[in-house]
């Protein structure tokens, strides 16, 4: 499998990273270099192998679905590039 410049533009769009037209060629080349290299995994027959879901065998811990920390509005918004009255400010998203 190999990615062309159109695919790079598409995945950059999915990843929400602006790329200039003059960056596409180099990015496609780098990604293809890495993709060609990972192709070797195809040599291994994994038909009967379960995918790993946890690096160390452990049962998922559960907790009660209750609020443990409250009134953190100021702390939560204090690093925002735009905040007003305890809310995040974003560009207009609906007309």
């Amino acid at each position: 499998m190999s990615v062309d410049q159109k695919t790079v533009r598409h995945i950059a769009r999915l990843a929400r990273i602006a790329v200039r037209d003059d960056e596409l060629e180099a990015l496609a080349k780098e990604l293809n270099g890495i993709l060609d290299w990972v192709e070797q995994l195809g040599e291994v027959d994994t038909a009967d192998v379960e995918p790993m879901t946890s690096a160390v065998a452990m049962a998922m811990k559960m907790r009660d679905d209750v609020v443990t920390e409250t009134n953190l509005q100021k702390e939560v918004t204090r690093n925002a590039p735009g905040a007003e009255d305890g809310f995040f400010v974003v560009p207009k998203v609906v007309e």
């Binding site: 929400r16 602006a18 939560v76 690093n79 925002a80 590039p81 735009g82 995040f88 974003v90 560009p91 207009k92 998203v93």
Partner: peptide
């Protein structure tokens, strides 16, 4: 939106 750098754009996606 929540922390760090913001570079404005024409709309939220471009931002």
């Amino acid at each position: 939106v929540r922390y760090g750098l913001r570079v404005e754009g024409r709309d939220v996606t471009e931002m």
